[in-house]
Amino acid sequence: MYNSRNIIIGLIIFAAFVTFPFYNNFGKAVTKPDPKLDTPEIQKFPENERRCVEPKEFMKAGHMQLLNGWRDSVVRYGNRIYVNDAGKEFEISLQNTCMKCHSNKKKFCDECHNYAAVKPYCWKCHIEPKEKET
C-alpha cells in the first residue's frame, strides 16, 4: 500500500461518516413515542364509540393533509362542515373539534411530532391549549 498514512486517514473519515448513526446512538435507550388517548372527554364515550373523524390508520399517517384540507375549506371557502367516509358530519375546527377530545397536546401531538422532528405551524394562528405541567 502506497501513501498508507493518507489512505488510512481517508478510510477512517469515511467509516466515521457512514457509521455515525450507529455509534451516535450507541448505548442510548430511545423510548418510542406513546401518544395518550385517555383524556376525560374521550373516556366519556363508551368503548365502542371512541373513534376519530376518520379511521385510526388513516389519521396516523394522513392527519396533516386532512387538517390542511380543513384549513382551506374554512379559511378559503367558508365551509365548516366535514362529512367523513361513513357519512357522519363534523364541525371543522381544530380547537373545538380536534382539541375537544385530544385536549392533551403535549402527550398527544408533541409526543410524535418531537420524535419525528416535525414542527407544524398550527399554533402560529391557533391558540395553544394551556396544560397543567405534569
Binding site: 430511545v30 418510542k32 399517517a61 419525528a116
Partner: peptide, 17 residues
Amino acid sequence: FKVPVVDVKVLTMGLIS
C-alpha cells in the same frame, strides 16, 4: 401515499441500535 413516519423511525432507530 402516506406511511406512518413514527413507525418508520421506530424501525430505523431499531436498525441502528
